[in-house]
Amino acid sequence: MKKHIMHIALATSLILGLWSTQALAYKVIDVSNGGKITGVISFNGTPPANPTLKMTKDVDYCGATISADYYVVNNGKLQNVVVSIENIDAGKPYDKKAIIPFDNKKCMFSPHVTTAVVGQRLGVNNTDPILHNTHLYHGPKKKTMYNIALPLKDRVIKKRMRKPGIVTVQCDAHEWMLGYVYVSKNPYATVTAADGTFTIDGIPPGTYKVKIWHEKLGEVVKEVTVTAGGTTTLDHTFSQ
């Protein structure tokens, strides 16, 4: 029985090993006549009310309460939705050295949701004059990735995003703080703007699986075909 389990464990770790090497396999190629995916993500109906967060610490600086930013809906358009093309192994170049800004601001994370490509670094800043600690957790099992103290104002700490997936960001010192970084395997991921729109460009022609993810509303995968130099529209409407 035990032996059997060991074998399964061995096989699983081999598969996991294989999978993680593949995840790093993004290749930069020349995309001269790439296509575009653009669209609007909406919310149908009245969005659930954001809870009021009680700020129990540093009230003098951050205030006593604030509305959570889980659902940001303007005229039915949904902000902070991650849109990403999942299965592109080769495509446009991107800045590997880019530092993705992530701020601790008035006891909230800003932006609330962002994306980074595997290997890029998150530049965590603290623009508050109080102590924060930025605690990043990887994946659905929320394994600690980093837990860094940010005692001083305006000093950017750069941390590399090594594995693809959703990274949940919290602050132990302020338990209401919550943010997300979607770490993608390729540079074809973005977050919807305040008007719910997004654009992904420089896509080699082909048919792809596009993931649409919202922290509370879950994820949807849609198949999209991109033509050379063309623009494909991809809209999606979430509802409760």
């Binding site: 600690n133 605690h135 600690t144 980093y146 837990n147 860094i148 103290a149 940010l150 005692p151 001083l152 000093r155 700490i157 132990d172 010192a173």
Partner: peptide, 14 residues
């Protein structure tokens, strides 16, 4: 190094 898994954060960057 901090104590990962608990709330004691790492100070090496600072």
């Amino acid at each position: 190094a901090g104590l990962d898994g608990g709330a004691m954060p790492s100070y090496s960057d600072f």
